[in-house]
Design a protein around this nucleic acid. Structure first.
Length: 279
DNA sequence: ATTAATGTTCAGAA
DNA sequence: TTTCTGAACATTAA
């Protein structure tokens, strides 16, 4: 479940090896399953990108962007189980795309691996990219938020704060796991209508969101029990060891040591919280 | 052996 | 306009 910290870890993990190299080939992996979403098709993808130098590796919300000298860019969206890898896939079967890179005489491989196959790989021209971004209407990146931006975003909906945090049009990058962790950290009920937060609560949200996401990046993301998420070298992240509530239904709240963590469903997604601490 | 649950995004409906 | 629902998919736990 790559969220902002996991995607940022992917980008940092491949940047050094990938930026400045030339794309020597791009291939679909021999995969028995229905192929992932790839636009345009592999032929056009080759024509437009093989021979190009990759000028930059960036994160946009929960997507990885590879910029090319032609100003076309690959936008890779891992969704549920996608990974960008430099080596050693968790399984051979779920490799999807192979980019062969050339750096002088050195050769490297970059892979997109995706167990469930919900991820997408797209190539955009600058105009197509702008159009796609306009369509998505992404909110500001979670790491770029300020108390004023939070106020603007949260004023726009009466939905529960937990649901609002997942709305990428309000703020981009937060997913199901970090939303629960952030709300527990500021002792705020996930059911609180977003547009009723006080200035003090907004300031806490702002500070905690930054602190948690930045710490999770330092820990290279969260690798859950299913072991799906890995960094670019196929190593586990370690922020899962710092989780206070996510996936911990029935366990004692680490803050109050009294009430147990509860799991509720909001907008068809699990929310974990402590009813005693979070009001 | 079915069935539910997992989390992200988008299309389409309410 | 805003909010909600289902589908895309693979794998595992119940």
């Amino acid at each position: 479940m790559p969220e902002l910290p996991e995607v940022e870890t992917m980008v940092r993990g491949i940047r050094q090896a990938v930026a400045g190299t030339r794309l020597a080939a791009v291939d679909l992996c021999p995969c028995p399953r229905k192929p992932i979403t790839l636009t345009p098709g592999i032929e056009e993808l080759r024509e437009r990108t093989v021979g190009q130098t990759i000028t930059a590796v960036e994160r946009r919300a929960k997507r990885v962007v590879l910029r090319l000298e032609s100003e076309d860019c690959y936008v890779i969206e891992p969704r549920m189980t996608g990974l960008m890898l430099l080596a050693d896939p968790p399984t051979i079967d779920h490799l999807r795309i192979h980019w062969q890179l050339r750096d002088g005489r050195k050769r490297r491989s970059l892979w997109f691996w995706d167990r469930r196959g919900l991820g997408t790989v797209r190539l955009y021209s600058p105009t197509e990219y702008e159009a796609a971004l306009g369509l998505q209407k992404l909110g500001p990146d979670a790491l770029d938020m300020t108390p004023a931006l939070w106020k603007d975003a949260l004023q726009r909906t009466a939905r529960p704060i937990k649901v609002a945090l997942l709305d990428q049009k309000l703020v981009a990058g937060i997913g199901n796991l970090y939303a629960s962790e952030i709300l527990h950290a500021i002792r705020l009920s996930p059911e609180t209508p977003a547009n009723t937060l006080t200035a003090g609560q907004i300031r806490k949200l702002h500070r905690s969101c930054l602190a948690i996401l930045e710490l999770a990046i330092q820990y290279e993301g969260s690798t859950l029990g299913d072991g799906t998420y890995r960094n670019a070298l196929n190593k586990d992240g370690s922020y899962q060891n710092e989780h206070r509530v996510y996936g911990k239904a029935g366990e004692t709240c680490p803050r109050c040591q009294k009430h147990s963590i509860e799991r509720i469903v909001q907008a068809q997604r699990s929310t974990f919280y402590c009813p005693r601490c979070q009001k």
